[in-house]
Amino acid sequence: MSIKKRLILSNIGMILIPIISFFLLEIALGYLLFVVFQGNPQGAEMKWFIGLRFVAMAFILVVTNGILTYVVSKSIISPLQKLSIAAKKVGNGDLDSPLKSEKRDELGELTNTFDAMRIKLKDAKAAREKYEQNRQELIASISHDLKTPLTSIKGYIKGIQDGVANTPEKLDKYLNIISKTANDMDALIDELFLYSRLDLQQISFHFEKVDLYAFFSDFIDELAFHLEKEQGSATLIANKNEAYIVEADRDKLKRVITNITQNSMKYMDKDNKKIQVQLFSEANEVIVEINDNGSGIKQEDLPFIFESFYRTDASRNSSTGGSGLGLSIVKQIMEKHGGSAWAESMLGEGTSIYLKLKKVI
Rank of each mutant, 00 (worst) to 15 (best):
R250E: 09
L253M: 04
K254F: 04
R255D: 08
V256H: 07
V256S: 06
V256W: 09
T258L: 12
I260N: 03
I260L: 05
I260M: 05
I260Q: 01
T261E: 05
T261F: 11
Q262T: 13
N263E: 01
N263G: 07
S264M: 10
M265W: 04
M268G: 13
D269A: 10
D271N: 12
D271W: 08
I275Q: 14
Q276S: 12
V277A: 07
V277T: 13
Q278T: 15
Q278N: 12
F280S: 07
E282I: 09
A283I: 13
A283N: 13
N284T: 14
V286I: 13
V288R: 03
I290S: 01
N291Y: 09
D292S: 03
N293P: 14
S295N: 00
G296E: 01
I297Q: 00
I297T: 05
Q299C: 09
Q299T: 13
E300G: 05
E300S: 02
D301Y: 06
L302N: 03
F306E: 02
Y310I: 00
R311C: 06
T312I: 14
D313Y: 11
A314K: 15
A314C: 06
S315C: 02
T320E: 07
S323R: 14
G324Q: 05
G324D: 01
L325P: 11
L325K: 10
G326A: 12
G326L: 02
L327W: 11
I329Q: 10
Q332N: 14
M334Q: 01
E335S: 12
K336T: 10
K336R: 15
H337F: 15
G338W: 12
G338A: 00
G339N: 02
S340M: 07
A341C: 00
A343W: 00
A343R: 04
S345P: 15
G348V: 03
E349A: 02
G350W: 01
S352W: 05
I353L: 13
I353D: 00
L355T: 02
L357Q: 02
